[in-house]
Design a protein around this nucleic acid. Structure first.
Length: 826
RNA sequence: GCCGGAGUGGCGAAAUAGGCAGACGCAAGGGACUUAAAAUCCCUCGGCCGCAAGGCCAUACCGGUUCGAUCCCGGUCUCCGGCACCA
């Protein structure tokens, strides 16, 4: 038998042509089959695919192909998250229009993906930068506006000077811009928000129902939304009508309040200060604090600073006068932006009180305190209320409830749940995004663009300087427009939308990608939604997945989306590492997928990325280890060649096989069983592939030259191998399938089923232990009973030697598996 | 600080209704074929002791439950990830 090369290039191009001719992966709704929507996170068209993409899409494709063979009607689409900053940067540095840069990148990356042989229905391809897509962003924005879920507000915002744009809180990482890593500062600007906080409770509470999501991601989202149960308490203001409201999780410490602190940027502060004796000083302090804060954003914890505002409040229960301080440590956007200061029972308040000489009043007994008098630190544990009027003597848990109830009865407070989550700022002063469909009229004010005038097209001929400000404001034909209401001269909104909007509903568009009257029809979405399996990087665990859930809920509320949760199951794949860190251009440790495909073929690259680590773990790239996958496919290809070199053969039903060949058949069917089990549960593709390697190891012991029986068993083994391998290395699988005389496409073949006869073994290995330690393995029929097994074990020389001088005290028997003899000295 | 997750050979990793620890692959060593190399094939491959048969130790560490623990329970250490002046 001659040794043959593994002609992967020829195989892969032939098979890819075959798929194209057969339209193998075109999606058609088939009501006779259960549906399965398999989706991988669509890429940003940066120019070239990287190993992270290869891994993401290899995992998704294996699942889609497996489900297809399991008889599901598959939706497996792909598209492009095509708006974003890099296109503008490329335009500035290389003088190419963003649209051209993006389109070229898409063309190139599509070619790369096609070389991998992924089973996408390319007829459903979408690109978010096309008007056919982004007009629906605008349409949805108008729906949000109608429902009061989009609003414009001024305020201090995170500003990245480098990118010349506003960033959402979610896009600030340790004080740095998530994209360019330069420091973020605060700027006062007006911008559009989406009211995601209206959905905070549902987004949080329904996380429990997402049983197909990794625990890790659910926890991350829960922490991000950050619910916190507490009480709002009103403090009236001396010399002013109304009151200031604080939020606290410790109403039990209310009697320990010795001051109240307000955030420097709090909306009411300016008005209150008008009557303050230290107004000018306070305003200077506020100004200084806010600027310092922006500059020090990326520092760990800023030193606590504050000043007495001169304003005085009244304690709601004791009626005592309490000073209102302005403090740099109070977060304006959380709770009410005002906190009560209880230095005796809060470490921050304690630190602050010490620094400024504010009294400390303990109201919760500390069982660990060594002396009465001025404590050395805040006691934040539990204890009994003291010096708390009628509440003294209660435990602090009782105190929380009693004080809150009391405040509620008197109309001085209420029990509430606050969330850390804040509204989503979506305005961007950038060009390459969806124009916000709003017009400003001098007489009518803000006027939404009428639905019939959508899309508001993004003009092509815009000059980009990168110098800040919105580029669309420099484009007169875009900017100047007549008011839709009164026809007067007006201006368009020149901000564009955050690109996270684009990816917040693309999975719905895939169910109906060419619809030109709606973003998608409810009928098509009802058939395919929810996404049964979503696959992507864990870096999107919070932002993208939260926004997508939010959009799906809103679209459900307006009657469009048939579901409230978009993704039934989520698989977050690990990163691809090289030399211990993530592959990146800046580290110079990238491995180019094209080069690998050229050298080893797509099947090898796919197989290796799936084999080398479980999908959810990080994958350490190893150039040498790739060759293991390549060798496996080469040996498999060789084995098929060896068999076919023997010419055609007849099938003999019910043929009696030699014991050795029966064991080979057992292995074939065990492999079917094991691979099926690996893929059915948590997508253990690495072990599934290991089993296929084991099967080939077994098959390589069968020589087709020996006889017809050998050839027939080998044929069964290789046909089985082709079907089981098809999700992972689809080109070679199809090639073997055809070579072995099978009809049609292996991708459309039913997943093989186990022959229970083949699984039966004459003998199995029984483990014999003495005191829990393995001392012998006995090959006996699987049905061997306890007495018989015991007899055999005691007849074994090694067991006898071990038991010498010992008395048997007990024997444990596990049917079909094990015997443990417990023995000890007499 | 709070919340998650993970610690198994030289390396990537297997194995848990508690029952042979290290499947599969990489690397390494030895051998066959070859003028030679590549490719391929065969053997060895957690540590220690032993000529061998075999024995002892070993799943981060300490302890517990059990006939039996990588798996369950309690404690300790380390690493990774997320959030963080959130009241």
């Amino acid at each position: 038998m001659s040794q043959q090369p593994y002609p992967f290039k020829e195989i892969e191009s032939t098979v890819q042509r075959l798929w194209k001719e057969h339209h193998s992966f075109r999606t058609e709704i088939n009501p006779d089959k259960p549906k399965f929507y398999c989706l991988e996170m669509f890429p940003y068209p940066s120019g070239r695919i990287h190993m992270g993409h290869v891994r993401n899409y290899s995992i998704g494709d294996a699942l889609a192909r497996y489900k297809r063979m399991r008889g599901y009607n598959i939706l497996h689409p792909m598209g492009w998250d095509a708006f974003g900053l890099p296109a503008e940067n490329a335009a500035i540095s290389r003088n190419i229009p963003p649209a051209t840069w993006t389109t070229d990148n898409i063309a190139h990356m599509k070619e790369q993906l096609q070389k991998l042989g992924l089973s996408y229905d390319w007829d459903r391809e979408v690109a978010t930068c096309l008007p056919e897509y982004y007009r629906w962003n605008q349409w949805m924005f108008l729906k949000f506006l109608e429902r009061g879920l989009a609003y414009k507000k001024g305020g201090l915002l995170n500003w990245c000077d480098q990118c010349a744009t506003v960033l959402a809180n979610e896009q600030v990482e340790e004080g740095l811009c998530w994209r360019c890593k330069s420091p973020v500062e605060l700027r006062s600007l007006e911008q559009w928000y989406l009211k995601i906080t209206d959905y905070a409770k549902e987004l949080h509470d329904t996380l429990d129902d997402l049983s197909g999501w990794p625990e890790k991601v659910r926890t991350m989202q829960a922490n991000w939304i950050g619910p916190s149960g507490g009480t709002r308490i009103n403090f009236s203001i001396i010399g002013h009508p109304g009151h200031l409201t604080v939020f606290t999780t410790r109403p039990d410490t209310l009697f320990g309040v010795t001051f109240v602190t307000i955030a420097p940027e709090h909306e009411e502060l300016k008005t209150l200060l008008s009557s303050s004796p230290v107004r000018e000083k306070a305003e200077a302090f506020i100004h200084e604090t806010l600027h310092k804060r922006a500059a020090e954003r990326n520092m760990e914890v800023t030193e606590k600073e504050g000043m007495d505002s001169g304003i005085r409040l009244l304690h709601p229960l004791t009626g005592e006068e309490v000073a209102l301080w302005i403090g740099n440590f109070v977060v304006a956007g959380y709770g009410t932006g005002v906190v009560m200061g209880v230095p005796a029972h809060d470490t921050r308040d304690f630190e602050f009180a010490r620094k400024y000489g504010i009294p400390v009043k303990p109201v919760i007994s500390n069982p660990q305190a060594t002396s009465i008098g001025n404590p050395e630190e805040a006691w934040t544990g539990s204890g009994t209320l003291m010096d708390s009027g009628i509440f003294s003597g209660l435990s602090n848990e009782e105190g929380k409830q009693a004080i809150t109830r009391h405040l509620e009865e008197k109309g001085l407070g209420q029990s509430v749940t606050t969330y850390r989550l804040r509204d989503w700022g979506i305005s961007r002063q950038r060009y390459w995004g969806t124009p916000i469909p709003v017009i400003y009229c001098p007489s009518c004010g803000m006027v939404p663009v009428p639905e019939s005038e959508l899309p508001v097209l993004l003009p092509r001929n815009v000059s980009l300087s990168g110098k800040g400000g919105s580029p669309l404001a420099e484009h007169p034909e875009f900017l100047h427009v007549k008011c839709p209401k009164c026809g007067g001269d007006s201006r368009r909104e020149t901000d564009t939308m955050d690109t996270f909007i684009d990816s917040s509903w693309y999975f719905l568009r895939f169910t109906d990608p060419t619809n030109d009257t709606l973003p998608f029809s409810r009928q098509n979405a009802s058939h395919w939604m929810p996404v049964d399996q979503y696959v992507g990087g864990v870096e999107h665990a919070i932002l993208h997945l939260l926004y997508a859930r939010f959009f799906t809920k809103v679209l459900n509320d307006i009657g469009l989306s048939p579901v409230r949760e978009p993704f039934k199951a989520l698989l977050t794949q690990g990163m691809v590492l090289k030399d211990g860190s993530k592959m990146s251009k800046s580290k110079g440790n990238v491995v180019d997928p094209d080069m690998l495909i050229d050298r080893y073929g797509a099947d090898t690259v796919r197989l290796f990325t799936l084999f080398s680590a479980p999908p959810d773990k990080d994958l350490a790239w190893d150039d040498k280890a790739v060759e293991g996958a390549f060798r496996f496919l080469g040996r498999l290809s060789q084995k098929a060649h060896d068999l076919l070199a023997q010419g055609p053969m007849d099938i003999v039903p019910g043929e009696l096989l030699s014991p050795a060949l029966r064991l080979v058949r057992t292995k074939i069917h065990e492999t079917i069983q094991d691979v099926s089990r690996d893929l059915a549960g948590d997508a253990q593709m690495n072990t599934a592939i290991a089993r296929l390697m084991e099967l080939l190891n077994t098959l390589s012991g069968v020589d087709p030259q020996t006889g017809d029986a050998e050839r027939r068993v080998l044929h069964e083994g290789l046909v089985t191998m082709a079907t089981l391998l098809s999700p992972f290395a689809p080109h070679l699988a199809q090639h073997l399938w055809s070579q072995l005389g099978q009809k049609g496409m292996v991708a459309d073949t039913a997943w093989p089923s186990v022959d229970p006869e083949a699984l039966k073994r004459d003998v199995v290995a029984f483990v014999v232990q003495v005191n829990g330690k393995l001392r012998a393995t006995l090959m006996l029929p699987p049905a061997t009973g306890e007495d018989e097994l015991r007899e055999n074990a005691l007849g074994d020389e090694r067991i006898q030697r071990t038991l010498e001088g010992l008395v048997i005290k007990k024997v444990v028997y596990v049917p079909g598996k094990l015997l443990n003899i417990v023995a000890g000295p007499a």
